[in-house]
């Protein structure tokens, strides 16, 4: 019974882990800043999914645990602002490099 109940936890938790692993590999593999921003975001998605699986595991009275959900919601908003900031910095960086090359 327990094993059956927890199977969404294991499936989505494992996917979260896999995404973290893939994200780490991609982050180190790429040398261009834009691809690294993408990798960092995908990695974050894996972490969020891991937390979501924990929320599902802690389900009580038919609904998932609100604490990890709240964490993930704030995390998503922080990560979009971090992404936008990273893009602004990357744009600046590229303009500098272009300026020096010309």
């Amino acid at each position: 019974m327990i094993a059956e109940l927890s199977s969404p936890f294991l499936l989505y938790g494992a996917v979260g882990c896999l995404l973290i692993g893939m994200g780490l590999y991609s982050l180190a593999l790429h040398t261009h800043v834009y691809r690294r921003i993408l990798a960092w975001n995908a990695l974050g998605g894996g972490v969020f999914l891991f937390l979501g699986a924990i929320a599902k595991r802690n389900a009580y009275g038919g609904s998932s645990d609100p604490l990890p959900q709240a964490l993930v919601i704030t995390g998503i908003v922080v990560s979009v602002s971090a992404t936008a900031l990273a893009l602004a910095i990357a744009r600046r960086l590229q303009t500098e490099e272009r300026g020096n090359g010309a």
Partner: peptide, 26 residues
Amino acid sequence: AWVQLDAIDVALAEACVGAGLTGALL
């Protein structure tokens, strides 16, 4: 996936921010 994890609030945030705004930014 968030819908499957019974976290519709997160699914909403992900749809609005993750897929929508981040998509437009990128």
